[in-house]
């Protein structure tokens, strides 16, 4: 099927001369959940803003549902709902008024039943007559989502939807996203957290310094990135790895006081149990152990260093 969003050779240089995006190519498939991962300042918001018409691209082309975002902006934009990263709301409006406004703004005729459904789905119905300035940050986030959904978009952009959000709202949000996906809505979300992408996305794109470093199915990527390290603090230092443990791909660290074991979390077997068994047989004791997961930042660094 034709991609719902096609981005080709998209670049953005801000007036300051800063290159926020460089020749980004990306296709978003109809009905998928796509997670855009990247550290601060990578260009995630810039990319989204260009697709939504908030930032003027320097060069390149974007089509949404087959419509060019500049020449066919009406058709393109009416397909899109945007939940921005910043919590920006009209302080003096009520929840109901602001959500109904969004629907009208996007050219749809009023539909109180639908608005009620959106507000109920987001647990905002009881607060519909509250002024926005009286709402908590999490509630404002919900309002922004309700605004984005008010006009029944086919594509939903969520720019860091879970920044500063508690566990409950996060869970609600994921449920909502899944429900939307089941209704055929394409969802693009940005995040700093690989766990979040892991939980939700079908495909993941990694962006760093304005370049899209990789785009991959989640399964494939998770396999690549899902490495953990087990560090054992030894009772007695070793000067080399005993031959009996050679099969385990171990590394010595901390002047021989630590043994480091790298394993795949996604693998059928992690290999931890056989390792512990062999350690006992070799008579190597340890005082303590810890596991660490390579952070997203580490992964970016290694990705960038290894080229594309």
């Amino acid at each position: 099927m034709h991609p719902i969003i096609e981005i080709s050779r998209l670049s953005k240089t801000y007036a300051s001369g800063f290159k926020a995006l460089e020749a980004v190519d990306l296709d978003i498939r109809r009905g998928e959940i796509f997670a855009l991962l990247g550290p601060n300042g990578a260009g995630k918001t810039t990319l989204i803003s260009i697709v939504c018409g908030l930032v003027t691209p320097t060069s390149g082309q974007v089509t949404v549902g087959g419509h060019d975002i500049i020449r066919g902006y009406r058709a393109a934009r009416s397909l899109i709902g945007l939940v921005p990263q910043e919590l920006t709301t009209d302080a003096f409006e009520t929840v109901l008024a602001t959500v109904s406004f969004s629907r009208g703004l996007f050219g749809k005729s009023p539909d109180p039943t639908y608005i009620e459904k959106v507000l109920r789905d987001l647990s905002l119905w009881d607060k519909r007559h509250n002024k926005l300035l009286m709402l908590s940050g999490g509630m404002k986030r919900r309002v922004l989502i309700a605004k984005a959904l008010s006009h029944e978009p086919r594509i939903l952009f969520l720019d860091e939807p879970t920044a500063g959000v508690d566990v409950e709202l996060r869970r609600d949000m994921w449920n909502l996203v899944r429900k939307l996906r089941d209704n055929g809505v394409t969802i693009i979300l940005t995040t700093h957290y690989i766990e979040e992408a892991e939980e939700m996305a079908d495909r993941i794109g990694v962006i760093s310094q304005g370049r899209l470093i990789l785009v991959e199915d989640k399964q494939t990527l998770m396999h690549k990135l899902g490495r953990k390290q087990l560090t054992l603090q030894l009772e007695a230092p070793l000067d080399r790895i005993p031959d009996g443990l050679a099969a385990h791909k171990l590394e010595l660290a901390g002047d021989g006081h630590e043994l480091v074991f790298t394993y795949e979390t996604q693998g059928e077997r992690t290999g931890i149990l056989p390792l512990l068994q062999d350690l006992r047989e070799a008579g190597i004791g340890f005082r303590d152990l810890q596991t660490t997961q390579s952070s997203l930042e580490d992964i970016f660094v290694s990705l960038v260093r290894n080229g594309r």
Binding site: C52, L54, D90, K147
Partner: peptide, 17 residues
């Protein structure tokens, strides 16, 4: 005011000329 409070993002992203 919407420019200042940044709520203008919504108008600018709407299918409106």
């Amino acid at each position: 005011f919407p420019k200042f409070s940044r709520t203008i993002y919504e108008v600018l992203s709407a299918p409106i000329s």
